[in-house]
């Protein structure tokens, strides 16, 4: 080979071809996804919780997808009633599909664990609930306080499993409250959208409905 331009052309052709096939075509051709009527956009607090989820890097241990029950046991493990579909993720930006399950899948954690108490004590120290858990503790999301110092109306939780000295309780920070609100919102149990829903939009995410 003696011609650089030939080499450069070939190299560019390869990347243009691949980008067309895997980025441009999906964007233009199959980009029409129905917004499921049962799926509400994230509220401000849930969106903040999602940002906390992203910033702590939860995705490195938790996926958010249920694969096809025909050839995986995701459904049988109780992670969701059906495989998830593109429209389940219209409000997700950035996506958090994940490639690792050091911990269980979370796309339906809001169904499995609806309790604030459970989430807060679990996040404060997972081993307070499951001694064998290897999930990191997130004590920095909580204020540890004397139960005597609580003001009336303040929300607090006690922690089981000997993870706190007696007389101490945890008070969630705003971040912790937001994170739990987000986790509780993770529910993709409605039936797969049939296509009769009103609003069609591009999964390209250029609509204002995406998470702020």
């Amino acid at each position: 080979m003696t011609r650089i331009w030939l080499l450069i052309t070939g190299v560019l052709a390869i990347i243009v071809f691949a980008t067309s096939l895997l980025v441009v075509i999906p964007n233009t051709m199959i980009g029409q996804v129905r917004v499921p009527s049962q799926l509400a956009p994230y509220t401000g607090q849930q969106a903040r919780g999602r940002a906390v989820y992203v910033a702590q890097g939860c995705v490195y241990c938790h996926s958010q997808q249920v694969r096809d029950p025909v050839y995986t046991s995701d459904k049988d493990r109780g992670w969701g009633p059906r495989a998830t579909v593109p429209s389940d993720y219209v409000y997700d930006k950035p996506h958090q599909l994940g490639t690792m399950r050091t911990g269980p899948d979370l796309i339906n954690i809001g169904v499995r664990q609806p309790s604030d108490q459970w989430h807060h004590t679990h996040l404060f120290n997972p081993r307070s609930l499951m001694p064998w858990s290897i999930m990191p503790a997130f004590p920095y999301l909580y204020d540890v306080r004397d139960s005597s110092s609580l003001k009336p109306g303040e929300v607090f939780y006690s922690v089981a499993g000997g993870k706190l000295p007696t007389g101490k309780v945890i008070v969630p920070t705003a971040d912790a409250d937001a994170l739990v609100a987000y986790l509780k919102s993770l529910k993709r149990t409605y039936p797969v959208p049939t296509g009769n829903e009103p609003a069609a939009r591009s999964i390209g995410g250029r609509s204002e409905q995406t998470m702020p």
Binding site: T9, G10, A13, V16, F17, S20, V24, I25, T28, M29
Partner: peptide
């Protein structure tokens, strides 16, 4: 949707032909 897919298909075909020609 159809026109844009046509554009892409056309663009890829032309690109492919150009590659073959260069080769």
């Amino acid at each position: 949707m159809l026109p844009s897919s046509l554009t892409v298909t056309l663009a890829i075909t032309i690109l492919g032909l150009l590659t073959v020609a260069a080769f």
